[in-house]
Nucleic acid binder design. Sequence first.
DNA 1: CGCTCACTTGAGTGCGATCAAGCCCAGTGG
DNA 2: CCACTGGGCTTGATCGCACTCAAGTGAGCG
Lengths: 240, 240
Amino acid sequence: MLIKARCLHNATANCSDCLLRTLCLPVALGPEEFETVVSVIEGSLSFHRDQHIYTAGDPFTSIYVVKSGAIKTLMLSDQGTEQITGFYLPAETFGMASIAFPRYNNTAVALETSAVCEIPFAKLETLNLNIPTLQRHFFDLMSREINRDQQLITLLSKHSAEERVASLLLSISARNHQRKLSSSRFRLPMSRADIGNYLGLTVETVSRILSRFQKQRLLNVDKKELEILNFDALKAITCG
Amino acid sequence: MLIKARCLHNATANCSDCLLRTLCLPVALGPEEFETVVSVIEGSLSFHRDQHIYTAGDPFTSIYVVKSGAIKTLMLSDQGTEQITGFYLPAETFGMASIAFPRYNNTAVALETSAVCEIPFAKLETLNLNIPTLQRHFFDLMSREINRDQQLITLLSKHSAEERVASLLLSISARNHQRKLSSSRFRLPMSRADIGNYLGLTVETVSRILSRFQKQRLLNVDKKELEILNFDALKAITCG
DNA sequence: CGCTCACTTGAGTGCGATCAAGCCCAGTGG
DNA sequence: CCACTGGGCTTGATCGCACTCAAGTGAGCG
């Protein structure tokens, strides 16, 4: 809240003060390199629920890092059906799927009130030439994105509905843990419909599975509030 | 065949003579830049069916470009089930999913006798610093890989078995067209089992669908030989 | 010749989709 | 203040696509 409020008034990024600093920029940057990098980052932008950070077809300019809130990215297929390709939580980077193209090929939407940092890609490219660590960092980010996508492919291709839901919950839990939030109690930023869309399931199936998990005392759900009661059992479910 | 035979004897890459040159390296390289790039590429390596180019767990060193033949990459999940994450045809690059990690996190296997070029990633990284076009090229490659993966996610999540098979066939056809081969008559380099694994279907389903397509006069299949008879109808199927 | 392996085809089953109804709660207006 | 409304979510009943199980074919090969 404090961060978000400040950012609304101060458009320049102040990475040094940012709580996510160690998560989203390589630690190995020297002090003057760090300043150079910060100078190209556009200050925090604020979006409320359902607002687009960018829309498929817009000229590609920047990639983004989530500062607070949560973002989903979605592709539109030929017949207009949407596929959610990712949920992005604070410190996570999105927009990289469009780097190879003149226009964004997916759409990024705020799931709740969110703040993001904007990194103009052209500036980043020239910066990379002088700061090897930085080039390496962005290769890493893209490689990790490929990995995430391929894990999702495996999930969709080989796993049952229960396994998919359990995996998503544990993934969000682990990512919360990484940023020092509770891994057992948190709020799901997305709707049941979003979860279903992402996992290739219908809303009804997602709802039924959450109810079933609750009946089995694996977790408690109340609307979007979630508490995981039995990590081991959930983990066991994901492993088929 | 000629290329492959030559490469077996000559370990240094000779990109200038390579028929795929315009497809796998950026055209905008100056002559001396081109020479520098070629100098770090390891000469063509040959693999026969089922041989591993690299195996998950091997120290990550290089990314690869297919020169001839065909390669599949696969991830192993917790319980040992394999998921094929991609088929790579000549001029296509694989291995990028492992850039962020000290070891390969997937396995690359030759589907048939194949030749590949090896690009040591550490050398590539330093080269990038002096050749902006090259950095851009590899960002593009990775971004395109993310896109391919996300298209597959959509396919698995939202499309029926028939739609998935039709999409794969048209994808291979289009990629053949791109490298000046016939888009209507070609040999499928992978088995029915591979197709099913990739598309999240069983062998039986793949086989049934190919038979059905043939009965509908959309294509002819004889073992791995494929002839597409009705592009429009296949295209219509992929669009749901 | 007999073995294996990739593929095909058929019959029956089950998981998740579809269709349908109802609940809960926030927002809106009288 | 309450009545109404709409959207997100839950729950139940039924359906159908793709999986499973099973059998058979044919090519390649020792």
